[in-house]
């Protein structure tokens, strides 16, 4: 056990856990942030995607030992009260089905928009490799495209569906 200091959603934490513990389980078990999901544990599915120093990463692949001083943002910290444009469009366009993969999808999508404010369909398809067993991909793509069209702050509430 070694205590590791890192910043999560803007708050400093000192985590005292086995140094081999993946960031995913640090977040879920030690910090109580269960919005980040376990799906595969091998970096395949992307359900555990968070931002590390501003970039989307698979948190199941990062060990605590390597995270001293890291700046992590999870779905709980993506916005204040769900106000991120993608969160609003996800609700408006009825994107999730079971919803389990969607935190990871949103973090991946938010990361994409951060580095490319106007992604094309191909950009989206290339950037987001997360798995959704319910098959919500067409709506995910449509919502990201609309977020890009709308710029940073579209009005919520339009009843239009994909």
């Amino acid at each position: 056990m070694t205590a590791v200091r890192l910043r999560v959603n803007g708050a400093e934490h000192e985590v005292d856990a086995d140094s081999s513990t993946p960031l995913l389980w640090v977040l879920r078990d030690h910090l109580g942030l269960t919005g980040t999901k376990y799906g595969c544990g091998i970096g395949e599915c992307g359900a555990c995607t968070v931002h590390l120093d501003g970039t989307p990463v698979r948190s199941c692949m990062l060990r605590l030992a390597t995270l001293a001083g890291a700046d992590v943002v999870t779905i709980e910290g993506l916005s204040d009260k769900g106000g991120h444009v993608l969160q609003r469009l996800w609700a408006e366009m009825n994107v999730p089905q079971c919803g389990y993969c969607q935190a990871g999808m949103l973090m991946a999508a938010a990361g994409l928009l951060k580095r490319n404010a106007h992604p094309s369909e191909d950009d989206i398809d290339a950037a987001i490799s997360n798995i959704c067993r319910c098959g919500t991909y067409p709506r995910i793509r449509a919502a990201i495209l609309r977020a890009a069209d709308a710029g940073s702050a579209p009005e919520a509430g339009s009843p239009e569906k994909s």
Binding site: T34, G35, K37, S79, W90, N94
Partner: peptide, 23 residues
């Protein structure tokens, strides 16, 4: 009407409690 699912606001903020999230 075609309302979206009622639990989506919880889903997109990470607050929806799935079985694996129970504390």
């Amino acid at each position: 009407a075609s309302p979206s699912k009622l639990n989506i606001p919880q889903i997109v903020t990470g607050k929806a409690v799935y079985g694996i999230d129970v504390q």
